[in-house]
């Protein structure tokens, strides 16, 4: 299964993103970010299924919520995505 990891700048922003996406019917998983994802230590990510990623990004963008970074993860590994 492939996922995108949307890195939020804070727990509050991550929660705001989660609520917004859930309202849109996009199920996400809010989790503490692995150190390699934030680059600054201590952060939060939203795990979004690959097929909902585009809608998720559009939804966040419409509300002015900009992710810090975005990563793609599948069976081959984890890599950063420029959005």
């Amino acid at each position: 299964m492939a996922y995108y990891h949307i890195v939020a700048r804070s727990i509050t922003q991550a929660q705001q993103m989660t609520k917004l996406l859930e309202k849109k019917g996009i199920g996400v998983k809010l989790a503490r970010a692995k150190a390699s994802l934030t680059g600054k230590g201590c952060g939060y990510t939203l795990r979004v299924p690959e097929r909902r990623f585009v809608t998720a990004m559009q939804t966040l963008s419409q509300k002015g919520l900009r992710p810090q970074r975005v990563f793609f993860e599948d069976e081959t590994g984890l890599r950063e995505v420029i959005v």
Binding site: R9, S10, I11, Q13, G39, K40, G41, C42, G43
Partner: peptide, 17 residues
């Protein structure tokens, strides 16, 4: 401490942290 950006020695530049 704010639970965010822990590697940085400056306070985060975003609210509410």
């Amino acid at each position: 401490g704010t639970g965010s950006d822990s590697l940085l020695q400056q306070m985060p530049d975003y609210l509410p942290d």
